[in-house]
Amino acid sequence: MTDLAAFPRRAWLRAYGAAVHDLPDRALGYEEPLGLRELREELCVYLARARGVRCDPEQIVICGGLLAGLAIVRRALADTGVRCLHRARVSHRALGELSRGTVSGPATGWLDVDGAGLVVDALPRRSRQAVLVEPAGSYPLGARLSAARLTTLTEWARRQDAVLVESDLNAELDHDGVGLPALQGSLPERTVLIGSTSRALAPGLRVGWIVAPPGLVGALTAARRATEPGQPVLEQLALARFLAAGDLDRHLRRLRSTYRTRARTFANLLEDAVEGGRLDVPACGFHLVMGLPPGAADESSVVAAAAAAGHRVRLVGLAGHVLHGPPLPPALVLGYGALPEAAMARAVQALTGAMAARGRRPDDEPAGSAATPPRG
């Protein structure tokens, strides 16, 4: 969870008030098929400046966030003849249902992830394929797509006439503010970019966007009508004013600085308290992955022990993000977005208490694989 306490209430109130004051009566009727044009125009300017995206307002479809956007894209891909959407087998668990046939779309192909990002060498040489990729950092393992893999992926897409579906989940939250530009900027004719305000501002806003090649916009619009009839107009106009005033840029600068400091502090506390635990700290976002030390019990036991202790610390095991294929070495996904620095020591104490309560195997024999980096 992002830091909800950091939500820029005053700036948003100004933008929302201006939206209510200036909104023409006709805009309170049924929404435009692609979403409010003023927001789409402002997104073109912002995404070009901040992410290197190349598009015009007619290529943007407003949606309810990342999950809603991906559901719309999956349906549109199926409607245009795409047979398989390949994606990382270790990914955000909330996206799992979108890969299990509960949402209309193409079949799912599974790819591994390692220290250089999505493993794309195994992509099939067949037509009517698509790939879901997170170049800025594959969640939760955090690896950026290497330059060599990016080249391989774009060459494959051109050769196979394939579609690349780019998730911009954490790209704006690069701790140094110099993250990779969007893949869409280098291959706009074959890339569908999905973005959202959920991590930069708050998931409760329910505003996201899809940037697509012109040839896919019609299918996306039809899929949006079928799955998500529309988005609240006032929130769209408020976001447009928020962008135009530069308030998102200012908010993101503060947030990056906050997360950079919290990541360093949290990692240092964990390294001091958990002997033998392996830490992976992604360069963007607001979480880290801690491999359980040798001799630790399986991660589900540690998660259960923390829940049973009644602490206000909710642990999430890495296994919940393994959507397909063999398990990974036991590890925990630890978020610090909503964790103030003053509370970090107590959180680490609760974690080590849970590990002490249920964190040893009955025979106390080391589990050698637990110390290996949690890559999938």
Rank of each mutant, 00 (worst) to 15 (best):
R158P: 00
V163R: 06
F7A: 12
A76S: 09
A350W: 14
R87N: 00
P373A: 14
A306M: 09
E134I: 08
P188G: 08
L13I: 04
S99H: 11
P329H: 04
R199W: 02
A200R: 05
D56K: 01
T102F: 06
S198G: 11
A48L: 04
A342I: 13
P340W: 12
V316T: 15
F242E: 03
T258W: 05
E166V: 12
L85N: 04
R375M: 13
L220F: 09
A50C: 02
L43V: 05
A370N: 15
T2F: 10
A319Y: 00
T108N: 08
A244H: 10
V131I: 14
V53R: 01
H311V: 13
A245Y: 03
L180K: 12
G215A: 14
L150F: 05
P362D: 11
P330G: 08
D168G: 12
P282I: 06
L292D: 06
G335T: 10
S91Q: 01
D247F: 11
A68H: 09
P229R: 13
H92L: 13
R346D: 15
R75P: 00
Y139I: 11
A226D: 13
R37Q: 07
T154I: 14
G65Y: 08
V45N: 02
V303A: 04
I60M: 02
L220E: 06
Y30D: 05
Q160A: 13
I194G: 01
A48C: 03
M290N: 04
G29F: 01
G64C: 03
M1N: 09
V348W: 10
D79H: 00
R206G: 01
V211Y: 01
A78L: 12
G295F: 07
R224Y: 04
G115E: 15
I60A: 03
Q184A: 14
S369M: 07
D25P: 03
L201R: 04
P229Y: 03
A244W: 02
A308L: 12
D363K: 05
R128Y: 02
A245L: 10
Q129W: 05
P188Y: 10
